[in-house]
Design a protein around this nucleic acid. Structure first.
Length: 570
DNA sequence: GCCGTTTTCGGCCCGACTGTTTTCAGTCG
C-alpha cells in the first residue's frame, strides 16, 4: 500500500510551500489532505483506480492529479521543482520537536543547513546562537531534539497504552483537589496506534496538580509546564499532555481534546456559520455560553446528533449526524462467541479444556476451536488424522454438558502458494467453521496473492478469510492484495471477512471494514487467541469495528447460534 | 489548494506555551 508514501510526500510539500511562503493557506490544504489519507485505511491505489480520489476529504482536482502522477510515475513534478528550489531534507528536520518550517528556513538561508548532520555540526560549532530569535535555550532544545529525531519516537499500540493510562490516572487521582480525570485524544477514539496520551482534568487546585504531574515517576522530560496545559515525555518515550479546565468547560474540553483535528475544524466551522464560536472552553454566542458542561450538548447546539468518539475522523460522520443517519455502533456486549481460537494442539499455550473454561466465563453461546493445519509446521499444524481425532473429542465435549456453550469444530487452514488448501475437502466438510489464512510467501506480487486468496475462498468449505491483509502493526506491513477483487469474490461465494482482534493485527482495519460493508459482506470479530488471556482481546476488535462504522447486524458472531450457522456457507 | 443551508469567489478553528521579545512569532495539538 502506498498510502504512507503519499502522506509523506504531501507533508513534505506542505512544509516546502510554507518555507517558500507565497500562500498561507496552500500548505494547510496539503497537510489536511495528508492527514486525511493517513487515516484512510483503504488502499489509495484502489481509490485512484476507481477515479475517486477527489472523494477523499481535502483532496480536490489539483491534488488528485498530483497523487495520480505519483502513483503512475513515482514522482510529482511540483515536488521535484520545490526540492530544487529549497534543498532542505524536510522529513529529517521535521522530526525535531520545536523545529518547524520557519526555523528550517532561518537555518537554511543563514547557515545553509539542509539535514540533521549539517544541523548537528552547526550546533557543535556554536553557529546557531545569534541568529534572529535564537537564544541559548532554543539551541539546547534543538540539540536534544536531534537526538530524539535520531531515536525515532514512534507510536504505541492501543493495547499497550491501556496500562500506561491506568497508571497515570491512578497517580493523578491521589492529588488533592482532583475531581475528574478523563483520557481524550486518539486513545478515546480507539485508534489502533496512538501518538500521545491526552489527559483532561477538572480540579480545584490547578497549580498543585501541574506541579505534581511534571514530577510524576517515569517522567523523563518536561516539554511544557503552565497553569492549564503541561506536557511531559515519559521514559518509555510516550508523550503525555494534561489540560486543566473548569467544570463548566468540561464537555467542551472533552469534545475538543478528543479530536480528531479535522473533525474539530469541521464542527467549529458549522458553529461559526450559526454565529457561534466553539473552543475548549465552550460554545459561545458573544460572551454568553450556550453549552460547555456536557459534551453531547455541544453537538446538539450546533444541530448534530451525538457522535461516538470512534467516528470522529471527519469521514462523513458529521454529515450523517446532520441527517440523523449515524450507525448504531456494535458493542462488546453484543458478542455471543469467538470463532477463531487456538489450543496447545497447535501453537497455543493452553489446553482445549482451559480455553473452554475461560470462554465459558465470558458467557459465550458458542466457541470455535480452530488450530493451525499441517503446512504451518512452525506452529505444529494438525494433520487430517489429528483434526479427525479433535472432531471426536469436541463431539464428546458437547454431549458431556460440561460447558453450556456449543463448542464448534474448526480449523485455520493454510492457503498454499497455488491457492489450494492444505487439508482435504473430505475433512473440511466435517468442520463447522473453516477459516482460511495466508501465512507464507507474503512477498509475492499483488496479482499472485490476490489470485491465491480468491482461489482459496472459492473452495465451498471455506467460511471465513482470516486476517485478510496479514499486517502486524509497527512491525510488518500488509501483503500486496487487491481487496476489491477479494471482496467481490467473497460476495459471490458467501465468504465472511475476519476482523482479527489481536492488538498487532486489527485486520481488517477501519477503512477496509467500511469498504467490506459497502460490498455487503459480513464480518466475524475473532480473537485468534493463543492463550487464555488473549480471549480478552475481543474488546480491541470491537473498538476497531466501531471505527469501521459496523453495527451488530454486520457482525456474524453477534447472532444467536442457529442464525449464525445459517450465515455460514452451506 | 479546498470548499459551499452566507457559495464558484473569498473565506479558511482556536488557544496555550515558549523563547525571545518589549508585543509577538513559531510551534503544537
Amino acid at each position: 500500500m502506498k498510502n504512507n508514501d503519499v502522506v509523506q510526500l504531501l507533508n513534505e510539500m506542505a512544509v516546502l510551500l510554507e518555507i517558500q511562503g507565497t500562500d498561507k493557506f496552500k500548505p494547510k490544504a496539503y497537510s489536511r489532505a495528508a492527514r486525511s489519507i493517513a487515516s484512510l485505511g483503504e488502499d489509495i491505489e484502489a481509490i485512484a483506480a476507481r477515479g475517486e480520489l477527489t472523494g477523499i476529504p481535502g483532496v480536490g482536482k489539483s491534488l488528485a492529479d498530483k497523487i495520480d502522477a505519483y502513483l503512475k510515475t513515482g514522482s510529482i513534478n511540483q515536488l521535484e521543482q520545490l526540492r530544487k528550489e529549497i534543498p532542505v531534507k524536510v522529513r529529517e528536520l521535521d522530526a525535531i520537536p520545536g523545529v518547524g518550517p520557519m526555523t528550517m528556513k532561518l537555518l537554511y538561508e543563514n547557515l545553509g543547513i539542509t539535514d540533521l548532520e549539517s544541523l548537528e555540526k552547526a550546533v557543535k560549532e556554536g553557529q546557531l546562537k545569534g541568529l534572529k530569535g535564537i537564544g541559548q535555550k532554543t539551541v539546547d532544545q534543538i540539540s536534544e531534539g536531534i537526538q530524539l529525531a535520531r531515536a525515532g519516537f514512534g507510536r504505541t499500540l492501543l493495547a499497550n497504552a491501556f496500562p500506561i493510562v491506568e497508571g497515570i490516572q491512578a497517580s493523578l487521582r491521589e492529588i488533592q483537589g482532583v475531581r475528574k480525570i478523563t483520557i481524550a485524544g486518539s486513545f478515546r477514539r480507539r485508534k489502533e496506534t496512538i501518538g500521545d496520551i491526552d489527559v483532561l482534568v477538572v480540579t480545584d487546585e490547578a497549580e498543585q496538580l501541574m506541579n505534581a504531574f511534571v514530577h510524576l515517576e517515569g517522567v523523563a522530560d518536561v516539554l511544557a509546564h503552565g497553569p492549564t496545559k503541561s506536557s511531559v515525555r515519559l521514559a518509555s518515550g510516550i508523550q503525555v499532555d494534561v489540560r486543566v479546565l473548569p467544570a463548566d468547560s468540561y464537555g467542551a474540553g472533552l469534545q475538543y481534546f478528543t479530536g480528531s483535528i479535522d473533525h474539530n475544524v469541521h464542527v467549529r466551522t458549522i458553529a461559526q456559520k450559526r454565529g457561534l464560536r466553539l473552543s475548549e472552553y465552550g460554545l459561545y454566542r458573544g460572551d454568553e455560553q450556550v453549552a460547555g458542561r456536557e459534551e453531547d450538548a455541544i453537538y446538539s447546539a450546533v444541530g448534530l446528533d451525538y457522535i461516538e468518539p470512534e467516528l470522529r475522523e471527519d469521514k462523513g460522520e458529521i454529515e450523517a449526524a446532520q441527517h440523523h443517519e449515524l450507525p448504531k455502533l456494535i458493542e462488546l456486549k453484543h458478542i455471543r462467541g469467538d470463532l477463531h481460537t487456538h489450543t496447545d494442539k497447535s501453537d497455543g499455550a493452553n489446553s482445549i479444556e482451559e480455553m473452554l473454561d475461560a470462554a465459558a466465563r465470558k458467557s459465550y453461546e458458542y466457541y470455535c476451536i480452530s488450530d493451525h493445519t499441517k503446512s504451518l509446521t512452525i506452529a505444529r499444524g494438525m494433520t487430517e488424522e489429528q483434526i479427525l481425532a479433535s472432531i471426536s473429542e469436541i463431539d464428546e465435549f458437547n454431549s458431556s454438558g460440561r460447558w453450556k456453550m456449543r463448542v464448534l469444530k474448526g480449523a485455520e487452514v493454510d492457503i498454499l502458494s497455488n491457492g489450494n488448501l492444505d487439508i482435504s475437502d473430505e475433512v473440511l466438510q466435517q468442520l463447522d467453521v473453516v477459516t482460511a489464512s495466508v501465512h507464507s510467501k507474503m512477498k509475492d506480487t499483488k496479482e499472485a496473492i490476490t489470485d491465491r486468496v480468491c482461489a482459496a475462498i472459492q473452495n465451498r468449505h471455506v467460511d471465513i478469510l482470516g486476517h485478510p491483509t496479514g499486517r502486524l502493526l509497527l512491525k510488518r506491513s500488509e501483503y500486496e492484495v487487491d481487496l476489491e477483487r477479494v471482496f467481490e469474490t467473497a460476495r459471490a461465494s458467501g465468504v465472511i471477512m475476519e476482523l482479527n482482534s489481536h492488538p498487532e493485527r486489527l485486520d481488517l482495519n477501519d477503512g477496509n471494514l467500511r469498504a467490506a460493508k459497502r460490498y455487503g459482506l459480513k464480518i466475524a470479530i475473532n480473537t485468534d487467541a493463543h492463550r487464555i488471556g488473549e480471549l480478552d482481546n475481543m474488546q480491541f476488535g470491537v473498538f476497531q469495528a466501531r471505527r469501521g462504522w459496523l453495527e451488530a447486524k454486520d457482525v456474524i458472531n453477534t447472532y444467536p447460534l442457529k442464525e449464525m450457522i445459517k450465515l455460514l456457507r452451506k
